[in-house]
Amino acid sequence: MEIKILGSGCSNCVKLEEMTRRVLSELGVPATITKVTDIKEIMSYGVMSTPALVIGNEVKVYGMVPPKARLTEIITTELVKSEE
């Protein structure tokens, strides 16, 4: 699974990254997490409010750090989709 965290280094971006790593290790899902800090690249996803979470090439969350349960839900759904 390919995950991108968009954000130019604000505290919420760090929080979202940490939370994503934790959820992934709890689920035992192998994934690569890339941090995207370049403003032009962030905006190319159509996102203006950071942090944002991108899985595949789709924006899943933006402008907030979601509750952990919600994040787990998002990642599992994507996992099922990618296995189909």
Binding site: S8, C10, M43, M48, T50, G63
Partner: peptide
Amino acid sequence: TPFCSCSAVPLFIG
């Protein structure tokens, strides 16, 4: 509109 100064740059560009 929710806004924090940390996202002033992407908002402006957008």
